[in-house]
Simulated assay, not measured.
Amino acid sequence: MIESKMNRRGFFSTLAKITGVAVVAPAALSAVFSSTAEAQKKRGGAPAAGGAAAGGMPMVDPNDSVAKAVKYVEDFKKAPEAKGNDCMGCGFYAKKEVRNGKEVGTCTIFAGKLVYGQGWCASWNKKA
């Protein structure tokens, strides 16, 4: 069995390292989060903190790879397979606001982006 005894020098060396991490980590994290907030301000978006206003969220681009994979369309009437269903009737959709006279909301399929309420995709799931 190997005995591990920490001598006085080892103890203070370890203590200094732990203290250094405790002092540097919050400053580093603060710098990361403030630079993220600054970048979002420059783009004109809302901060990423919880409860962010939907006004700063971008709309889903129908040409996005995820949108194409689920066959997202901004107008359900243009997708015969929608069978009259739209995002407003989907369990993944939550209304947020009105943009350019059209209802928009969040969708769990497209994290951080908004979809049109009159949109549709192949992941449509009837609202409970």
Rank of each mutant, 00 (worst) to 15 (best):
M1S: 09
M1W: 04
E3P: 06
E3A: 10
M6W: 00
R8D: 11
G10R: 14
G10I: 02
T14L: 10
T14N: 03
T14K: 03
L15M: 15
K17F: 07
K17C: 14
G20A: 05
A22S: 07
A22K: 02
V23D: 08
V24Q: 02
A25L: 12
A25V: 10
L29T: 00
L29P: 00
L29Y: 02
L29S: 01
S30R: 01
V32H: 00
V32A: 03
F33P: 00
S34V: 07
S34T: 10
S35Q: 01
T36V: 15
T36K: 08
A37C: 06
A37W: 00
Q40E: 15
R43P: 01
R43C: 04
G44H: 11
G44D: 09
G45V: 05
A46F: 05
P47L: 05
A48E: 00
A49M: 06
G50Y: 07
G50R: 06
G50Q: 06
A52D: 06
A53L: 01
A54M: 02
G55T: 10
G56F: 00
P58V: 08
V60K: 01
V60E: 01
D61V: 04
D61F: 09
D61T: 12
P62N: 05
P62R: 02
N63W: 01
D64L: 06
D64Q: 12
V66N: 05
V66E: 12
V66S: 04
A67H: 10
A69H: 11
Y72A: 03
E74Q: 07
E74I: 02
E74C: 03
F76K: 13
F76I: 08
K78P: 14
A79Y: 02
A79H: 12
P80M: 11
P80S: 11
E81N: 03
E81S: 01
A82M: 01
N85K: 13
N85T: 08
D86W: 04
C87R: 05
C87S: 10
M88Q: 05
G89E: 03
G89P: 07
G91Y: 10
F92R: 07
Y93D: 04
K95H: 09
K96C: 06
E97G: 08
V98G: 11
V98K: 10
G101D: 08
K102H: 07
K102E: 14
E103A: 15
E103F: 04
T106Y: 09
T108D: 11
T108A: 07
F110E: 04
F110L: 14
F110P: 04
F110S: 02
A111H: 05
K113Q: 14
K113P: 15
L114M: 12
L114K: 06
L114C: 09
V115H: 15
V115I: 14
V115C: 11
Y116H: 13
Y116W: 07
Q118D: 15
G119R: 08
C121D: 15
W124Q: 13
W124G: 04
N125Y: 09
K126Q: 14
K126N: 08
K127A: 03
K127S: 03
K127P: 06
A128Q: 12
